[in-house]
Amino acid sequence: MSDKYRKVAYYPGCALEGTGHAYNRSTKEVGKALGLELVELQNWNCCGAMEVKNVDPKLQTFLSARNLKIAEDMGFDTVMAPCNGCYHNLKKAEYDLSHDAASRATVEQLSAKSGATAYQAGHVSTIHALDWIRDAIGTEELGKRVKNSLNGLKIANYYGCMYTRPRHIFPEKDQGAGSESTSKPHFMDDLLAAAGAVNVEYPLKTACCGGAHTLSDSDTSTRLVLNLLTTAEACGADVIATECPTCHSGLEMHQMRAEKVFGKKTTVKILYFTQLLGMALGLSARRVGVHENFSDARDLLKARGLG
């Protein structure tokens, strides 16, 4: 445990105020339970997600740069984003602003027209909720704080695409022992193992859920999600742990859609890793928003003495 990340700027993003509300709630609750402070960015805007990038990538850089500037102006050198999409975009903006003059020029131009000062690369670093808990508390200390062990709950850890790809926007990853791996990420595995879970060997940790086309090409998304779900079940998982609101709601929605449209029923439950950690830290299932999930995991959790 260190003072690092004890108090960081917090960027929830749009999804965490909507379908990913349970992730927002459980992240805050876990922070509180661990004595970590989150200060929400004042008057933040959408990171642009995948959609603005498709319209114009530099516009997405501008939107994320504006959020980084807010963090800087509030006196922070670190901003934590639990959503993979937001996290990815802030990282990408930082990378593009340090490497691409045209991106810098666009951000300068748009900032000036908006009446604001442009963000300059190098002032604020972006971390994911996984980095936050891992570096501020550490797995050893986390293990000591567990009040209600996950007690061998079998978990498939699902990281999705945006947390590791493309590699170049995550310079701190793949740096040897102790760093996160882009091909076989393990930070979530480490935290949940410390909380008493048994992580199954899940080969699809960074496979795609089709989140980009979850509504615009639903059949493709359903097929991709069904593959994630059936593989998790074949690996013996009770639960798929998630760390992204788009993946999470995609998995839940298409689990239902696979059942209703394709007649393929799966029973593996889907929970945010912060919900699992929160319950291990002694918080109730309600407190970490389990009832807000689309898929109902309450019976499983009750049977396991959790929540």
Partner: peptide, 9 residues
């Protein structure tokens, strides 16, 4: 294309 960026990787 689902923009998973496996190709870019």
């Amino acid at each position: 294309c689902v923009s998973c960026n496996k190709c870019t990787y």
